[in-house]
């Protein structure tokens, strides 16, 4: 079953409604309601569009009556219903949990990933969704480190977004709905990885591609006065295509992978078993101390300490 024979498009981004503090799915955290209708009960993030008015928000939520809210119509579909699969999936749950591994042993800091991304997404040069930092070790050595969005399992950017414009798909991608973002930039304050870039003026114009209207997984062109960030080319993944940075890295540093099927691949066509690759090469995650549980692993390989080396942009 090849993706090219059987193209699968995102019919709609699956939004796993996230709960505060944990990032657990609201469906799991809220006892009430059916699986597809995240309840509004105490503490559960209200489903988008599930509330029609402020009075309803305050009153209904205070009454903690999730059932009453079903009247307003749930938008989220049951997760399994629109889970697309390209490689066959296990019987339940999302087919994939995307992850990345960056093998820093091979990174020479050429920034080809940054440029591939900026070209694909029509970004201004300052909008480095994947940004290559040059790190200096305590001993004075340097190495390079690319920083895409870490697609945190516990994304602080999501928790602080007041209107749920930042959301997380059930395949683990944190995306921004730029047609909903109010431009408050709280997410930029919250992201420990500085992965978010605002559109402070007009976005760079982009040629319209027929059949590809702007969506959270294809945020092109960007929207003025809203926030944008690396999306791991969420439009490509379901089609079995590699993200622009992965394909664009001539050194094969960046692996895109899937925790569920335990497979990862880089732009040179090297395929690895993800868990084994991370384990055997002592993969670490960046700034673990913030409790964000990133979906990106780094393989330092030269004994670098990602978390204490100083960097220059």
């Amino acid at each position: 079953m090849s993706a090219s024979e059987e193209p699968v498009r995102f019919t709609g981004i699956r939004r796993a409604e996230q709960n505060l503090v944990t990032g657990e799915d609201a469906t799991a955290g809220c006892p009430s309601g059916d699986a597809g209708m995240p309840g509004s009960g105490s503490g559960c993030k209200l489903s988008r569009r599930s509330l029609l008015g402020g009075a309803a928000a305050v009153g209904a939520a205070a009454a903690a009556s999730a059932a009453a809210l079903e009247v307003f119509g749930g938008s989220a579909k049951p997760a399994a219903a629109d889970t697309s699969s390209t490689a066959g999936s296990s019987s339940s749950g999302p087919a994939h949990q995307w992850a990345m591994v960056l093998d820093l042993r091979n990174c020479d800091g050429c920034k080809a990933c940054t440029m591939a991304c900026q070209q694909r997404h029509s970004l201004w040069p300052s909008q480095e969704w994947i940004k290559v930092y040059t790190m200096t070790t305590a001993a004075g050595g340097t190495y390079h480190m690319a920083r895409p969005c870490q697609m945190c399992e516990d994304p602080p950017c999501l928790y602080v977004c007041p209107v749920g414009a930042t959301f997380r798909t059930d395949e683990g991608l944190v995306l921004v709905d730029q047609d909903a973002c109010i431009g408050c930039r709280t997410c930029m304050a919250a992201c420990p990885y500085e992965a978010r870039y605002f559109n402070w003026g007009d976005p760079k114009p982009a040629a319209k591609i027929p059949g590809m209207p702007r969506s959270p997984d294809w945020p092109v062109p960007q929207v003025k006065d809203t926030v944008g960030k690396c999306v791991w080319c969420a439009d490509r993944l379901p089609k079995g295509e590699l993200p622009a940075c992965v394909a664009g890295c001539p050194m094969g540093v960046i692996y895109i992978g899937d925790l569920t099927t335990d497979v990862a691949i880089n732009g040179l066509g090297n395929v690895v078993r993800l868990s084994e690759f991370i384990r055997d090469n002592d993969g670490v995650r960046f700034q673990e101390e913030y409790g964000t549980s990133p979906r990106v692993w780094y393989i330092p390989g030269h004994g670098q300490d990602l978390n204490s080396d100083s960097a220059t942009a």
Binding site: L20, G54, V160, V163, T186
Partner: peptide, 13 residues
């Protein structure tokens, strides 16, 4: 949107 699609875990809300 703060009223009709709020995120209750956000300090801004």
């Amino acid at each position: 949107e703060l009223i009709y699609r709020p995120n209750l875990s956000s300090p801004i809300f």
